[in-house]
Amino acid sequence: MGLRDRLEHVDRRDLMATKKSYSVFGFQVSSDLTLPELAVSQRVEPSPVNIQAAEQSQWPLLEPSHHSTQTLQLGAGEWRLGLEGIGWFRASNGQTLEWQRWDDSVSDRDVRTFAVTSGLGAVAVQRGLLVLHGTAVERGGQAVLLLGHPATGKSTLAWCLVQRGWRLLSSELTVVDGMGMVWPGIQQLKLWNDAAERLGLDWTQLPPVRRGLKRYALLPQEVACAEQPLPLRSLYVLRRRKPQATSTDHADGQLRVSDPFSQQQALLSLRNQAFQARVYRGMGLEAGLFVQAGALARRMPLRALQVPDGITAMGNGLEGIDLLDPASLLSLKGEGSDG
C-alpha cells in the first residue's frame, strides 16, 4: 500500500476513530481527527486542547470585533473561520478547536488542512504564545527560523536543508517562547508540483495537500523531524531575489544575508510576520504580541536572507554556508526591514 493509499485509508477510518493525542507548539492535543503532521504524544495531561466535531449552528452568537472579515469572525477568546464549500472552525479560549464539514464531500484531509494551520495557530495565539509565519529547522541541537509569508520559499529551502542533514521542527507556523526556545509544531512540508519536480521527487507517490491541488505533503515519513524544543540560534526573514538575466556575477546564485535590523525594524518585521496581526488584534491580544515580538527582537538579531529565485539555485546556494552562522554568508548591502 503506497503512502497515498495509506492516508486515504486513514481518512476513511477517521469516521470511526477514537481520540488521539499529539503535541504541538508545547501543548497537548486530543483530536478526533487523525493528524499525521503532528508528533504523537505519549504523555497524558489533565486538560489537553480538544479538537472535535461540532454543530456550528449551536455555537453561541458572537459580537464580532471590527477586525473581523466575512470569513473570519474574531472576538475576545474567540476565532471562527467559515470557508464556503469546506466547513466551519471555531477556536475558543485556547482550549477547544471545533469543526464541521460543509457537506459529506469534504474529506478529513480538507478539514485538517485548515484545522491544523489556521485553527491550531489561533489556539496558540489564544494561549498567549508568539506564533510567527515561519519554518524552523534544526541541526546540532540548535534552531534556525526562516520567517516569511506563504509562497516565499520557506518549504523549498527547508527541504533542501533536510537533504543536507537538518531536521524539521515546525513548518508554516512556528512558536518561539520567552526563553528563545522553538517548539516542535506542524511537521509537514508542502511543495508545489514544479518545486517537487525540480527537486527530483516522484510526486506521483506523494499525497496531495488536498484532493485536486498540485501541491504535495511531505510528512514525517519523508522528512526527518526534531521532537524537542530547541534554542533559537539564527533568525532570518526570507526574500526572493529576482534573477538578473544579464548578470555576470558568479555569486548571483548564492544566499546573502543582511546586517542585523535595528531593534525597531526587527520589532515591526516580527509583528508583520505574526500569524496574523489581524487575529491578535481581533481577539484583543495585540499588546501581548508587541511585548513578545519586542523581547524576541532584543534577544536575537533579525536579518534578511536573500535566496535565489530558482529552485535548483536555492539548493546549490547552500553549498559551503552554514545558516547557524550568518557570518558564513555573503553580505547583502543596503537591505532594511520589510516594515
Binding site: 470569513t71 489556521s118 506563504p150 508542502k190
Partner: peptide
C-alpha cells in the same frame, strides 16, 4: 490571506475565486 484567515495556497481556483469578492 490576511482577509480570509487561511493560506490561500491551500485553496484551488474553484474555491478561491468565489471567496475573493467576500475578502
Amino acid at each position: 490571506d490576511d482577509q480570509l484567515g487561511v493560506n490561500s495556497c491551500d485553496l484551488g481556483f474553484a474555491e478561491l475565486d468565489p471567496l475573493r469578492g467576500a475578502a
